[in-house]
């Protein structure tokens, strides 16, 4: 706001005092009003995070790779700059149509000797360790998805179940 002291040389009309008071009052009113309004300003919307990626979040007795696992990997992992066909972080693509061959019986680049998905052994599968909450299991590496909301417990359990049931291309 500009400084609005009245001119001492040429008041608009009447005496200097009679002009000064309303001007000061007006300036004070505008300043206080502006501050009050700025303090009460707010963003009028909510955008809650959706860790399910818009997919159902339920525990499944027999998860299907095509129906349950692959869409989840695509939605949460194959995003821009990550495990998309274009960026291929750590040479891993988790997009639909490519993820099965990229993870099942494929050695991890981060932990040589470990398989990303070892059929029938979820505990030994590197991909499960990377999405789980235990940092020791990841060797101190960042939990995936990186810098974002973790997969839900149901999603993680569905991946584990699918692996323990043989990691089939079903």
């Amino acid at each position: 706001m500009p400084h609005l002291h009245p001119s001492p040389i040429r008041p608009c009309s009447g005496s200097g005092d009679s002009i000064t008071a309303p001007r000061r009052v007006g300036f004070a009113i505008m300043t206080v009003l502006a501050l009050v309004l700025a303090m009460t300003a707010c963003a009028d919307f909510q955008s809650p995070e959706d860790p399910t990626g818009g997919l159902p979040d339920q525990l499944l007795p027999t998860p299907s790779f095509a129906l349950d696992i692959e869409p989840m990997l695509d939605r949460r992992c194959a995003t821009g700059g990550c495990h998309s066909p274009r960026t291929r972080q750590v040479e891993l693509v988790l997009a639909i149509g490519e993820s099965y061959d990229a993870i099942v019986d494929v050695e991890s680049r981060l932990l040589p000797g470990a398989l990303l998905v070892e059929p029938s052994n979820a505990d030994a599968s590197w991909i499960v360790r990377m999405i789980s909450s235990d940092p020791a299991g990841r060797g101190g590496l960042s939990r995936m998805p990186l810098a974002s909301t973790p997969l839900t417990p149901n999603q993680i359990d569905n991946i584990r179940t699918w692996i323990n049931q043989g990691a089939q291309r079903n």
Partner: peptide
């Protein structure tokens, strides 16, 4: 509505 309420001087 649905975006913001704010003040300008």
């Amino acid at each position: 509505p649905g975006s913001l309420v704010t003040a300008r001087v």
